[in-house]
Computed example of a mutant assay.
Amino acid sequence: MRSQFLLIIGGFFSGVAVALGAFAAHALKAQLSTHLLSVFQTGVNYQFIHGAALLMCGVLLQLPLHDKARKHFSRAAICFIIGILCFSGSLYALALTGAKWFGPITPLGGVLFLFGWGIFILAAMNMKEVKR
């Protein structure tokens, strides 16, 4: 996965998280119950954290890494992207629509986040093999 793409998508997801957080705090505060507002905010928090993780992957992929580390950082980034869409996206949809069928999608995103962090750790463990 290209470093530039990850920097762009990480910046996009992070910026959208800020906008959605502000939207929730101002426009949704009067529209949603305290519980649903909390659900929405959880989506924002996880989106922001994993947007920053995408930025880290993008920066790390600019280093002269061993192919194994490069591949792992790319795979971790894929897990983070799909995790954001599943986890945060399902929480946003659940909070805004009240449709409970979005609920089962959330854990899939959480599992992808966990896989992503595990793969990220594998990548970091392989960084000692830097190409010179």
Results as ranks from 00 to 15, higher is better:
M125Q: 13
G103S: 14
M125G: 09
L108T: 05
G118H: 07
G89M: 11
A124Y: 15
A77D: 03
K131R: 15
T42H: 06
F102M: 05
L7G: 06
I49C: 07
L122I: 11
F73M: 02
A99D: 14
G15T: 04
A52I: 15
G15Y: 12
H72T: 08
R75I: 02
Q31G: 03
A69I: 15
K131M: 07
L54V: 03
K68H: 15
L36M: 14
G58W: 09
H72G: 02
L114T: 06
A93M: 11
F23L: 14
L60V: 14
H35V: 03
V16Y: 00
K128P: 10
G10W: 14
I9V: 12
V44C: 04
R132M: 12
G98D: 10
F48R: 06
H72D: 15
G43M: 01
Q31W: 10
V44L: 05
I9Y: 11
I9G: 04
M127Y: 12
A99T: 03
L28S: 08
A69L: 15
A95T: 04
S38G: 05
I121E: 01
M127W: 07
F23E: 01
C79I: 06
I105A: 02
K128T: 13
F23K: 10
H26C: 08
L112S: 06
K68Q: 15
F102L: 04
S90P: 06
L7I: 13
A93L: 14
G109L: 06
W117G: 11
F87A: 08
L112D: 01
I49K: 11
M127T: 13
G118Q: 08
V39K: 03
V130K: 03
F120A: 08
Q41N: 13
I8Y: 12
